[in-house]
Simulated scan of single mutants.
Amino acid sequence: MAVGSRRQRELAARRRARRTGAVGFLVAAALPILLWRDVIAGIASEFRLDVRYLITGWSPWVLMALGLVCLLVAAVQDWRNRSRRFYGPTGAAWVGWGVSLYLLGFALATQVAQIAESVGRS
């Protein structure tokens, strides 16, 4: 009986972790839009095919998007059936890359927003 209840607790913990991860992913995807909607709109309104503009204006959002893609890959790997014959390693490296890229993009977006605000005031 104890083995069955242990298995039930493990499955419940896995479901709870997946729900928490899904909510965290949605919050991480919505946060830049909520925080920097005006900055993104301002950058997009001045769109031009210039390397300097693309790198300085869009790199934070691209880094955050790449981080979210890496986290999505890790989630897909976690949802795969673990009892399959060729089940591979866990997605820990994908999570590491995802969190690193997202945080780097977030920090850079903060700086871009501060620069855009100081340019707008002068």
Rank of each mutant, 00 (worst) to 15 (best):
A2N: 14
V3L: 11
G4M: 02
G4Y: 15
R7I: 11
Q8K: 14
Q8E: 12
Q8D: 08
E10T: 04
E10P: 00
A12M: 13
A13C: 09
R14C: 15
R15W: 05
R15I: 13
R16T: 13
A17Q: 14
A17R: 09
A17I: 09
R18S: 14
R19Q: 05
G21T: 10
G21L: 11
G21W: 09
A22C: 06
A22N: 14
V23M: 07
G24I: 08
V27D: 03
A28I: 11
A28E: 03
A29D: 04
A30K: 05
L31I: 10
P32Q: 01
P32I: 04
I33E: 00
L34R: 03
L35K: 06
W36R: 04
R37M: 08
D38Y: 07
D38C: 08
V39M: 01
I40E: 01
A41T: 02
A41G: 09
G42Y: 03
G42D: 00
S45D: 03
E46W: 09
E46I: 00
F47V: 01
L49V: 11
V51P: 02
R52V: 15
R52L: 15
R52G: 05
L54G: 07
I55P: 02
I55G: 07
I55S: 12
W58E: 01
W58V: 02
S59C: 04
P60K: 00
W61H: 03
M64W: 03
M64K: 00
A65V: 02
L66N: 02
G67R: 00
L68K: 09
L68R: 01
C70N: 03
C70M: 12
L71Y: 04
L71W: 06
L72A: 15
L72D: 07
A74M: 10
A74F: 12
V76I: 10
V76W: 08
V76N: 03
W79S: 07
R80D: 07
R80P: 02
N81Y: 13
N81I: 06
S83C: 13
R84Q: 15
R85G: 09
Y87S: 12
G88Q: 15
G88I: 05
P89F: 10
T90C: 14
G91M: 13
G91Y: 07
G91N: 13
A92D: 15
A92G: 14
A93W: 07
A93L: 14
V95A: 15
V95K: 12
L101S: 03
L101E: 09
L101G: 01
Y102W: 05
Y102G: 08
L103E: 11
L103N: 08
G105N: 04
F106D: 00
F106E: 00
F106W: 06
A107W: 05
L108F: 02
L108K: 00
A109I: 10
T110Q: 10
Q111M: 08
Q114T: 10
Q114G: 03
Q114P: 04
I115K: 06
I115T: 06
A116H: 06
V119G: 08
G120D: 13
R121H: 02
